[in-house]
Simulated assay, not measured.
Amino acid sequence: MMKQLVFTIVFLFFFSFAFAQIPHGDLDNYKREWIALEENARPLIGIRSFTVMGSKYYLIVDPMTLETRIVDSKLLKVRSRDSVQVNKSLNGTVYERCFSIVRKTENNLQDAGLNFRLPKESGINLTIDLCPSHKPLDKDIFEDVLSAFKGLDSTLPLAVSVSGKWLLNHPDDLAWLKSLEKKGIEITWINHTYDHVFNSKPLVSNFLLSPGTDLSYEILANEKLMLKNGLMPSVFFRCPGLVSDRAIIEKLLSFGLIAVGSDAWLAKGQPVHNGSIVLIHGNGNEELGVRDFIKLLQTEADAIKAKHWTLYSLSEGLEQYPN
């Protein structure tokens, strides 16, 4: 009995900081929520709930900062479960602004969502996709970032879009990525679906538009796997191939997720500007994109040293972007 109590206390302590390796079987009834919550008078939105050893938890979003956390339900006050009231509670928040921005491009076949340069930024928003691959992680990307900013910035934000099939096949690479936090790299973990469906058909029948694709499963299964591996799912989502349609974007929004596109996919030769959302693949399958990114760091070396060019978090600057 005492042994079980000690285990429970230790588990909950680490889980509260989102670093626990959560056994898949211990995370039960993981499901979508859309609920207005409150923590110490601070409004929050619950987008997922689940139980661990009989205790209920929420994956919450701060609607002003877009930060996500896991919080014990006993520490939260339920303000409303009515979807209309929950939506009203978002008025004037950054979260609401993101929904509005995303809906402007939801009819795009490719690159819907946040796909633009963010204003007032001197630098880029770096996003690195990890699609399924048997090749090792391109560690050069991260090592060159650390080298370029050595002695200049204590925190270097970037985003990694991770697929479930990549996670399952790269435990050592994942451990290495997680270790980078000690060196100052702050990773925003983006859901990139569990299976990352791909076929040889045209885009209208490919990726998430492939017949029979279950988007709910792709979202929730990957989030559960991320949590199991100690990764905090962010509010962002990257569609495989950047391919979607209106129905997909609306479903993502119903799950509280913000689609992230790119205005600078380097392997496609798209130019980089200040505030660009840069896309490269770090799964060993995009040598050109990685090479172009390293060249970009070299080109901006003087600006980096002068602190005139840096890396930004995806959540920065969105409050300034016009609806």
Rank of each mutant, 00 (worst) to 15 (best):
V6S: 14
I9R: 04
L12Q: 11
F13A: 14
P23W: 10
P23R: 03
G25M: 02
D28H: 15
K31P: 03
E33D: 13
W34Y: 07
W34E: 00
A36M: 02
E38L: 13
L44D: 03
I45A: 00
R48K: 13
R48W: 09
Y58D: 05
T65W: 00
L66Y: 06
L66V: 05
T68P: 11
R69G: 10
D72W: 14
S73N: 14
V84D: 02
V86M: 04
G92F: 09
R97E: 05
F99W: 02
V102C: 13
N107G: 12
N107H: 14
L109I: 14
L114C: 06
F116I: 12
S122M: 05
H134G: 07
K139C: 04
K139P: 02
D144H: 15
L146F: 00
G151L: 03
A159M: 08
L168E: 13
D172C: 08
L174A: 02
L177V: 01
L180D: 03
D195Q: 14
H196P: 08
P202N: 09
L203K: 14
F207C: 13
L208G: 02
G212V: 10
T213A: 04
D214C: 06
S216Q: 11
I219K: 09
L220D: 08
A221W: 04
A221R: 12
E223A: 06
K224F: 10
L227K: 07
K228P: 00
L231E: 00
P233I: 04
R238H: 07
C239E: 15
P240R: 07
L242V: 07
R246Q: 15
K251G: 01
K251V: 00
L257I: 01
I258W: 09
V260G: 09
V260A: 05
D263W: 01
A267L: 08
G275P: 04
I277Q: 05
I277D: 05
V278T: 09
N285C: 03
D292L: 15
Q298G: 15
E300K: 15
D302M: 11
I304R: 07
T310F: 00
Q320H: 10
Q320S: 13
P322N: 00
